[in-house]
């Protein structure tokens, strides 16, 4: 663990921990809505934002936030219409996003493949102090919004019509979710990369819900798993020299497998303990 004497490693660790905590806090609402893949789609759109930033010599993070937020709001408006063509509209938007991004990055001065890979799969150890400030501020904002509005967001994601009849500002809450998703995608771009962002939002939630009974406990456990996977991901990747983003995701998937197996085992043992084995009576008359 002497790796953490370097400043860049500490920055990498802090950035990863912030995202490990914030991504599942948002992801749980996406999973509840059965929109688990939406983060992936917004990640595709964010790449266009990165391309715009590189082309205009601005910070790619800021332009990615703006473009992906616009994309997320667009997706939300399509979803509100609730038409079947929405599925196709999403596909067009996603592929437009990634193709646009690749073309724009290619047109920019810094058009190396390494640069593109850095955004697609993350590049944690190049996190600058300024990046870390942006990641921390936005991450904490996402975390606060997702926990402070939990009852209202739960109500909207659980039963949108009921929430409307309750007089909740459903449209505003949905737009808040859309913008927060875009922000989370963009700050996680540094850690796990745009192609693996969605995994950090969804996998910890999937792992937690194997053993939890309620929404609040699922959210808490998912955040713990996200935090653990992100921290361990940075440490392990530094030791064995692998990509931190992919390592984090593999660790989160490992947690999912372990928790599923463990949960299944506990349930089976409990069932065995509670139910005495019943011996069926024979179908024939036994003669002595």
């Amino acid at each position: 663990m002497d790796l953490f004497v370097y400043d860049f490693m500490i920055r990498a660790l802090v950035g990863a921990l912030v995202i490990g905590l914030a991504a599942p806090a948002l992801g749980i609402y996406l999973v509840q809505r059965r929109l688990s893949l939406i983060g992936d789609g917004i990640g595709h759109v964010a790449l266009t934002g990165v391309g715009v930033g590189l082309l205009l010599h601005h910070s790619p993070v800021i332009s990615a936030v703006i473009v992906s937020a616009a994309g997320a709001v667009g997706i939300e408006l399509i979803r509100q219409r609730g038409r079947t063509s929405g599925d196709l509209a999403l596909a067009l938007l996603f592929y437009g996003g990634i193709a646009g991004g690749v073309v724009l990055v290619g047109l920019s001065d810094d058009s190396s493949n390494a640069n593109l890979m850095q955004y697609l799969f993350g590049s944690l150890i190049t996190t600058s102090p300024q990046d870390l400030v942006v990641i921390t501020i936005l991450g904490v904002a996402v975390l606060l919004a997702m926990t402070a509005f939990r009852p209202a967001l739960f109500a909207v994601c659980n039963d949108e019509e009921y929430a409307r009849v309750s007089g909740l500002p459903v449209r505003t809450l949905n737009l808040l979710m859309a913008v927060t998703t875009a922000v989370t995608v963009t700050i996680a771009m540094r850690t796990v990369g745009l192609l693996l962002v969605s995994a950090l939002m969804v996998v910890p939630v999937a792992a937690a819900q194997q053993v939890t009974r309620g929404f609040r406990s699922t959210m808490g456990l998912a955040m713990v798993i996200g935090l653990g996977a992100a921290g361990a991901g940075v440490a392990v990747s530094a030791e064995i020299d692998t990509a931190p983003g992919a390592t984090t995701v593999i660790l989160a998937l490992g947690a999912f497998v372990l928790i599923s197996l463990g949960g299944g085992l506990v349930r089976t043992l409990r069932r065995r303990a509670h139910q005495p084995r019943e011996v069926e009576p024979p179908d024939v008359v036994l003669q002595s």
Partner: peptide, 26 residues
């Protein structure tokens, strides 16, 4: 309002108490 059935959004477990608590938001 009491709808015909529980909403479609149930990908994540929720307890009976949590669902009923939504009724207090209004």
């Amino acid at each position: 309002y009491v709808p015909q059935r529980l909403g479609a959004g149930s990908g994540v477990p929720a307890t009976v108490g949590e669902v009923v608590a939504s009724g207090r938001l209004a």
